[in-house]
Amino acid sequence: MSRIRRCLPALLLYGALAAGVALTLSPLLWMLAASLMPIGEANSYPPRLWPSTVTFEHYAALFTRLDLGRYLLNSALLASAVTAIALFVNSMAGYAFAKFRFQGRDRLFRGLLVAMVIPAQVAMLPLFLLLKQFGLINTYWGVIVPGMASIFGIFLIRQYLLAIPDSLLDAARMDGAGEFRIYWSLVLPLCRPILVTLAIFTFLGAWNDFMWPLIVLTDSSMYTLPVALANLLGEHVQDTELMMAGSVLTVLPVMLLFVALQKYYIAGIMLGGMKG
């Protein structure tokens, strides 16, 4: 009796955890299972949890008939470009906010932080008109340009660099190194962990972004995966297995990236959450 009482909390805990994990993962597992089912099998009653025979025909159809390789490439290209530019410009600005002394620095930084409550959608209508003036609608640059610098990115780098002593940089300055040299060969290597964090955040954000690419990219050959997927749903809503294969291909790259680098990702959320 007393033994049961002692074990009861642990039993309840693991019961709750197991139920939570099952509920969290079952939509993703079903997505994967349904993507491998023969045509029509995902629409049967009672619902099947596992394919009767595994088939890759939907994946093949996506790449051969529906041009998914193109969208995969578009997404990879855009997310990589945004990430590369974001790392460069945000780290420079974050460094300046952390280590340079200039008038109005803290006020400027606080102003930027406060502006984070402005929802991005407010800017979208004039941004569209602006990019139209520049001839950037329906181009890759139209997607890249608004996402390349971010207040959150500057914030992350600044917080990280504040913890690094000035004496390190002063020593380099004494040796006569120029500001850009110090940034490039001293600050950037020091920032490596937080740069990885920023890279994942930016890449995932750009890969998963939907509304802005939907607005800017009008030609279907330019679509990113999420936009293409939403578009595909319009014509193939009945083809459950095909849609699931498309969803797997959209989700899988970012999930793998996260699983590989989750230490950095979680650290970034903690840094943002604690200091914010």
Binding site: G20, V21, T24, L25, P27, L28, W30, M31, A34, A42, L204, W207, N208, F210, L225, P226, V227, L229, A230, L233, T240, M243, M244, G246, S247, T250, V251, V254, M255, L257, F258, Q262, Y265, I266
Partner: peptide
């Protein structure tokens, strides 16, 4: 528990539709 956070909203919205 964190896995759904990194997924693409459009893709999982499609999954949930079914």
């Amino acid at each position: 528990f964190f896995l759904p956070v990194v997924t693409t909203l459009v893709a999982v919205a499609v999954v949930w539709r079914y």
